[in-house]
Structure formats: structure tokens, C-alpha cells
């Protein structure tokens, strides 16, 4: 069983309310999830709080994880990332958490074979390298550090409209390249 399969198995046991599986899942994944939160929040104690919130959601939403729809790590990281970003922007949980959570059930590509996922990852990496430096950097910062458009505009010293145009064009170019 690969690591990802083990994590997937843990998530399905967590969905049944298995506390021991939850403990195992935490042990196997919390270092990564804390890293994700830390990248966004920069502060260890805030990041730990956000990670804890993320695991509360993981516990209650594990039943909504659909095996094969996304990598289990991607699913977990998405929850951690959304939670950290909401905290960074000081959104009230009632505002958006539930809605963000809803997007976690999206069905998309099914990269259950690691070769498919790996070749997609290679392709995306290649395409990001082909992207204009600024646009790639903006996408990367938005993803990894959870920067908002206002943050990005400040970082790149360009007007808000401009940064949004950059980023959206960057995304569309990236998409066209990946599909090429």
C-alpha cells in the first residue's frame, strides 16, 4: 500500500468516526498541514490554531471525501489552506467556511494512477516555467502564501486591476499550455 493509499484508507475510517484512525491521520499528515498554514500565516501559534480548525473540519467532513477524485493529500491541504487564508483575512467563519467546504466535494479529474498525476505535475511545472515570470510569481504567491489581490498589487507595485488582469491571463495561458 502506498502512502497515499494508506492516507486514503485512514480518511475513510475517519468518516466512520474512528478516533484511532483520526489520530493516525493526524500523525501522518499534520507536519505537512502545519507547513501549509505556516506559509500563509507566518506565525507559529496562529498556524497551529488554523491547523487545529482544519482537522476539526477534516473530522466532520471526512465522509465527503471521494476516493479517487483527488489525491487525499490535495484534499487535506486544500482544507488547511482555505482555513489558513480565511484566518489571515480575518473572515468570520460563518461568512465563508461553509461555502469553501462545499467546493471540496467537487469532482474533477481522477488521478488515481500515480503515473497520470505525476505526468500532469510535470506538465504543469513545465508550463509554469514558460509563463511570464511576474505572472507565475503572482500565481505562486497567491497559492502558497494565500495573498489576496490587494496584497499582490502591493507586492508588485501595480494597480489592483492590473494585477487581476495579469493573474487571470496567467491562469488562462497556463491552462492552454497544459492542454496543448
Amino acid at each position: 500500500m502506498t502512502d497515499l493509499e494508506r492516507i486514503e484508507a485512514m480518511i475513510s475510517r475517519v468518516a466512520l468516526g474512528d478516533r484511532a484512525a483520526f489520530s493516525d491521520l493526524y500523525d501522518a499528515t499534520s507536519a505537512k498541514l502545519l507547513g501549509v498554514c505556516l506559509r500563509v500565516l507566518k506565525d507559529r501559534s496562529l498556524a497551529e490554531d488554523a491547523m487545529q480548525d482544519a482537522y476539526v473540519k477534516i473530522w466532520s467532513h471526512a465522509g465527503r471525501y471521494t476516493s479517487g477524485v483527488a489525491s487525499p493529500m490535495t484534499w487535506l491541504i486544500t482544507i488547511a489552506r482555505n482555513t489558513a487564508i480565511d484566518r489571515a483575512r480575518m473572515r468570520k467563519p460563518a461568512d465563508n467556511l461553509a461555502d469553501h467546504d462545499a467546493t471540496l466535494t467537487a469532482t474533477g479529474p481522477t488521478p488515481e494512477q500515480s503515473t497520470v498525476a505525476a505526468s500532469l505535475a510535470r506538465r504543469v511545472t513545465q508550463c509554469l516555467a514558460e509563463l511570464q515570470t511576474d505572472r507565475a510569481a503572482a500565481i505562486r504567491l497567491a497559492y502558497l502564501e494565500g495573498l489576496s489581490y490587494a496584497d499582490l498589487a502591493e507586492r508588485f507595485e501595480v494597480p489592483l486591476n492590473t494585477i487581476r488582469t495579469w493573474l487571470r491571463r496567467g491562469l488562462m495561458t497556463l491552462r492552454a499550455c497544459v492542454e496543448r
Binding site: 507547513g35 506559509r39 488521478p111 498525476a117 504543469v124 509554469l128 497559492y143
Partner: peptide
């Protein structure tokens, strides 16, 4: 979400 997850490798575990 899947495509952007290529950045996840950059995340340093803590």
C-alpha cells in the same frame, strides 16, 4: 486545485 498542488512540494513540513 489539482494542478496548483504542484506547489505543495515546496511546503516545508513543521
Amino acid at each position: 486545485r489539482l494542478q496548483l498542488s504542484v506547489y505543495d512540494e515546496e511546503v516545508v513540513e513543521a
